[in-house]
Structures are given as structure tokens and as C-alpha cells.
């Protein structure tokens, strides 16, 4: 028996070995490199192999880094909030209102934005929101406004709008899956036990959809905090987020140790936030079985 298990285990290891090696190569190796760089000294265009804490000291004390880091956190928190709040009704509608045979079509339609490249979608938002963009020219053309609206381009609002749109499917799908898993008789039971539709939603649907909502939060929050393209294009380069700062250090200034320290710090912060959400989610997931 034990021998049989051993053979099975060996077979299992053999099966996972190729993807494991692949993951090690493309994930762990670069991470380790970055981690090593962050403790080395910058020698202008080269990296000097002297151990130092200086990069981290600079990252954690520099007011510019702090501002940008906080902005990144705020923007991704806002994007996450907006995305999930907008995604929930869509997921709810598809799960509860759309007839079962039409659901696949709806999900298919929701993924349509993915058919074009992220870069092109971001650029299209620039066309829509711009100073002479679709919105402004139509509104001025119709005589509704005299001067182009300025609060929709090159600021945090426009970044939030663009990112919220880009990540909407990522938020809709996990929430949809969580809603689909809810036994519909539970909602009838809620009504049967004297609760209105709204209270049944609050006491039954929402708690049971929470694992999906928290998954959506993580899926949106983690990539948006490191987003580089949108702040660059939509923000006009005037409101850099942490990824832009890293890019500048790594490539423009060729200060790899400092860039690496920035990257590691950003990663640590994201990891911390994620762990908090995972812990919350475990509470909700525990009730499922």
C-alpha cells in the first residue's frame, strides 16, 4: 500500500515537474534578482556588489515616493470600489434576471472588451475623454457646455474611469459565479420567513455572494496598483503611480537598486493588503462545503 502510494507520488511529482521548473524560471528567478538588486549599491550605469540598506531607507523616507505610493493605493482602492460596485449589479442581473439559456451569450458579450489590446482600449478612452474628445466636442457642439470639461482628463478621475472599464469583466465573473452558486430556494426561504426582497438580499444573497465580491476586489486591486500604461497615457504623465516611478528609476535613471527596492516595497504592501482580504474571505468560505 505504502509502496503504491510512493509510486503514485513519484508519478505526481514527475507530472508537475515541467510547469514547476517553468514557474521557477520565469517567476522565482526574476523575483530573486530584484530582491538581490534592492540590497546592492548603485554605481551609476552599473550595480556595485556592496550590501546596503540605503535603498530602502531612501524609499521609506522620500516624500515623493510616499506621495506616489499613497496615490497608487488610493487610485487602486477607488478603482476597486467603482469596479466592484458597478460589476455587482451586472453580475446580479445576468445571474438572476437573464434566462438560463441566454447566460452564456451575456458572459460572452461581457468579455468583448478583451478582444482588443489593453493599450488600444486605454488610448480609446483618451479619445473619448480628451480636451477635444468625443464627450467634450459633443457637449460643446450641442451647446450644453461652453468650454471643454477638464475634470475628465489628465487626472485621477480619468484614470479611475479607464481602469474600472478595463477590469470590469474580472470583477463581474467571480461575482457572477458566486451568485450562480446560491440555491434559489434559499431566497424563497428568506421571503417565506417574512422578509421583503430587499431584506432577503441583505440577509441571504449578499453574505453568500461575499466570497465572489472579495475575489473580485483582489483581482482588481492587485493589478491596478502596479498599472503603468493608464497613468502614462490617460494621466498624461503628470500623475505618476508607483509603476511609473519604478520605470523611471530602472530605465530612465538606470538606478536598478533603488528601482528594485521600490518594487519590493510595493509588492510587500500589496501582499499585506491581499493577506488581509484572504483572511476575511476565509471566514466567508468556511461556511461553504
Amino acid at each position: 500500500m505504502a509502496k503504491g502510494l510512493d509510486a503514485q507520488a513519484r508519478q505526481g511529482y514527475a507530472l508537475i515537474a515541467p510547469p514547476f521548473l517553468y514557474a521557477l524560471l520565469i517567476l522565482a528567478a526574476p523575483l530573486l534578482t530584484i530582491l538581490t538588486y534592492s540590497f546592492l549599491t548603485d554605481g551609476y550605469l552599473t550595480v556595485v556588489r556592496d550590501f546596503t540598506w540605503a535603498n530602502y531607507v531612501q524609499v521609506w523616507t522620500d516624500p515623493i515616493v510616499r506621495t506616489v505610493m499613497l496615490r497608487s493605493l488610493t487610485v487602486s482602492a477607488l478603482v476597486t470600489l467603482v469596479t466592484v460596485l458597478l460589476a455587482f449589479p451586472v453580475a446580479y442581473y445576468v445571474s438572476f434576471m437573464v434566462r438560463p439559456e441566454k447566460k452564456a451569450t451575456w458572459l460572452f458579450l461581457i468579455t468583448i472588451p478583451f478582444w482588443t489590446s489593453y493599450l488600444i482600449r486605454v488610448f480609446l478612452w483618451k479619445v473619448i475623454l480628451g480636451y477635444n474628445g468625443v464627450i467634450n466636442s459633443s457637449l460643446t457642439g450641442l451647446g450644453i457646455i461652453d468650454e471643454p470639461l477638464t475634470f475628465i482628463l489628465y487626472n485621477v478621475n480619468s484614470i479611475v474611469i479607464t481602469l474600472a472599464h478595463a477590469y470590469a469583466p474580472f470583477a463581474i465573473l467571480p461575482i457572477f459565479v458566486a451568485l450562480e452558486k446560491i440555491d434559489r430556494s434559499l431566497l424563497e426561504a428568506g421571503r417565506d420567513l417574512g422578509e421583503s426582497r430587499a431584506m432577503t438580499f441583505w440577509r441571504v444573497t449578499l453574505p453568500l455572494a461575499m466570497p465572489g465580491v472579495l475575489a473580485a476586489v483582489l483581482i482588481v486591486f492587485i493589478p491596478t496598483i502596479g498599472d503603468y500604461v493608464t497613468p502614462e497615457l490617460i494621466g498624461g504623465g503628470k500623475i505618476p503611480m508607483i509603476a511609473n516611478l519604478i520605470q523611471v528609476q530602472m530605465l530612465a535613471l538606470d538606478n536598478r537598486p533603488l528601482g528594485s527596492a521600490l518594487a519590493v516595497t510595493a509588492m510587500a504592501i500589496v501582499a499585506l493588503v491581499s493577506i488581509v482580504f484572504l483572511l476575511i474571505n476565509r471566514r466567508f468560505l468556511k461556511v461553504r462545503s
Binding site: 430556494s185 441571504v204 453574505p207 461556511v287
Partner: peptide, 14 residues
Amino acid sequence: TNMVFQSYAIFPHL
């Protein structure tokens, strides 16, 4: 009226 559902419809989160 109150109902006992075929699937019992016990709230799994409670």
C-alpha cells in the same frame, strides 16, 4: 404560511 422546502433551504452561512 411557512414552508419546508424539498432541498430544506438551510442558510449555509448561519
